[in-house]
Design a protein around this nucleic acid. Structure first.
Lengths: 229, 229, 229, 229
DNA sequence: AATGAATGAGTGTTCATTCAT
DNA sequence: AATGAATGAACACTCATTCAT
């Protein structure tokens, strides 16, 4: 069993370019507020913390129970299995992400560039706010199976399609000149997803700067005309 | 424990934008050729396959042994622990990656754009050739600890620094006009790393097209002047 | 692993002077009565039997579980490790021994000779009643570590100090004329401890004779004036 | 597996009355001088050290090999099994002990008291000189089986019979007045054997004082007339 | 909804021993 | 006499899960 006690990465490393995907020592990301059903929220948050710190297979239901302040066996009154618990955590994380992005796009202007900028800003914002949830979402989906898995894949595809649609719109309208329209959305999403692997709240860039910077990376990548910075 | 028997993801999904990071059903990526020391190479390759298929904590030493065609206990004549085995797999993967990138850059022209293009092409090439190794490298570093961990981080930083140096050179020389030079190398690397999470040998794009496409993404992101496609 | 199937030592040997410290084939010394906590007492008694028969390292938790009539994993609901289990067995054994000796001394007369006689009689009585516990106490303490070890050493020192105090009193009062007061208590304790290594319930001497005899050895060793037998 | 790293017992404990039977941190008792047969002596000495430090079941053949500076498999060119190795160590230890005691008795006067004094002195001397061998002899015989076991028991009985014979002679001749002659030799031997469990080379008493003191204990126990100290 | 006790399958790792060289 | 590679059985311990209460 892996006990992850590794010392905090020294500050100089943080500004480096290493993407290590460390998931420990993050502020307990309260992904789930009270659900009005006993210990449910506590369990979900504890599960997120445990899966984040040890990975799905490295974390134990006992740890989750301890983190939630309840007994091991009580977990099974809320979730029928460890996998279902993971599935529910991931479902909630993606739901919130999708909602935020969709809202941002709806509030943006009509042109593809504005919409892409706002989509990226919302996405990066969520990554910063719910870094642990993003890391777990990325790293642990693979341990889902069957229906739980396909449902999550569908959810995720819906979120990613928002970006793909904007790219399509932009290319069709001549705003984006990338010759690789079909794959560019994926490249943008890879970039912003990866923010979760290296972002540190005490880093050089503020939440807003980070969002703005990635919006520019995205538009540049899509070969939109850029203001001379 | 998760036994991953999930049915193959249908073809239509493959062309979609979902980055699921499935690691199963890949051709056994023979990362390591014979090392001249008994079963060592077989063990390393089996470990890569097992860690890829089940994750570090999901894979068992018994599976590795079976994959390598040797006995469980014999594993420990070669590697003192499961972690060391992982460490060695990752070390070799990164060594090969670094070597390829370094060679490509050395053989490129003197200007930053050419060097970046060749670095990205080599990197993407490695991702395609050793997809499983890249996936495992990304996903399982976190289970390393202590010296094994810090050694690998240092190795990796060296590889990533190649890109950072090229960006710096390009910005200094006016070739790259991105205003966010400090973080741009990381964005590029995120993009190319992510290729491992969705690439399929039978996909729409060939190895060469993929490399070329990502080179263009990278240069665009860095705001290098682009040919009108 | 040693499986102790050696044939019973022939009767003639029993009366000999060999101290072999055989620990098998003794009646299951029910050291612990029901503790009111599930299988706890059964586990402790089974552990005593197993450690006695095979030694701490020779005994396996599976054997203990089998002896206790429960499952291997359930052992860990009661004791966090094999060492802790040993520690608890030894702690209880010494607690009972100390209590018996202390009670005997309290009930004895005021003179050192009476007190020593009663202390020895109580000690030998315990050795006979809980022979296996005494053997295990003597032979397996060394496998304890850290706090468990220091706690037991302290417990044991307290018990032995009872004898040392009586010797001191007797020498101070002129009852004992040994010139080596500082070490004599240890010699007496060595003698009575060793009874556990050779005593057989079906031996020549009864429990009472054994106690009486060792009381006389002790007083003689301390150079107390003896009745002409 | 027990790794005995416990810190050295503090000095104040050493003078106390606790018999813990610690076997670590003793000077490597070179029980066996060169036997003229390759690595044999080194193996035997390493085995003694390993069995002393970890117990028979706690020590591994790998440790013995390392201690002897040879390879694991080479051990089996000298001794057919771990048990035989233990048997040989114990055989040599007892042989040396018996020789020393027999010589001392032969060199003593004719009266039982002198003979007993010299026997005890020789025995204690050996315990001090070969403390580790004595500890291992006492603690690990029980792991011997079959012929190895019975041969050693016979050896040991012969050594102990020397004491029993002296007691018999002394009682018959009126020198010893103990009414419990049949068991007294065993009591004396228990006492001197136990010296191995607490003796420290840097303790309060010298080797000679220790021997002298135990001779007096023995004679007192046997109720021989004593000089007024 | 909540708990403590229980369990069978599994984990990484170590063992004494063997064998080919 | 000496070695490195190999093995099957065993080890202490943990797992997700169930059940009686």
């Amino acid at each position: 069993m892996i006990r992850q006690n590794h010392p905090p990465v020294p500050a100089v490393k943080r500004a480096g370019c290493t993407n290590l995907g460390d998931m420990n020592d993050r502020s307990p990301a309260l992904l789930v507020a009270d659900t009005g059903r006993g210990n449910e929220a506590a369990i979900l948050n504890a599960a997120l913390a445990a899966f984040g710190a040890q990975g799905f297979n490295g974390a134990s239901m006992r740890e989750v129970a301890k983190g939630a302040g309840t007994s091991l066996s009580n977990l099974y009154n809320y979730f029928p299995s460890k996998s279902h618990l993971l599935a529910e955590v991931l479902r909630r994380a993606n739901a919130e992400l999708e909602a935020r992005v969709r809202r941002a796009v709806a509030d943006a202007g009509d042109d593809a560039a504005s919409r892409m900028r706002e989509a990226v800003r919302a996405y990066v914002g969520f990554v910063v706010d719910q870094q642990l949830a993003m890391l777990v979402s990325t790293a642990e989906v693979r341990y889902l199976q069957g229906e739980d898995r396909s449902r999550l894949v569908a959810d995720r595809d819906r979120t990613q399609a928002i970006f793909a649609d904007i790219v399509e719109q932009g290319v069709a309208g001549g705003e984006f000149r990338t010759p690789h329209a079909a794959d560019a959305a994926r490249a943008v999403l890879s970039m912003v997803n990866a923010v979760a692997t290296w972002y540190r709240p005490d880093g050089r860039l503020s939440r807003g700067q980070l969002a703005e910077q990635h919006a520019r990376y995205a538009l540049a990548l899509l070969e939109a005309p850029l203001p001379r910075a």
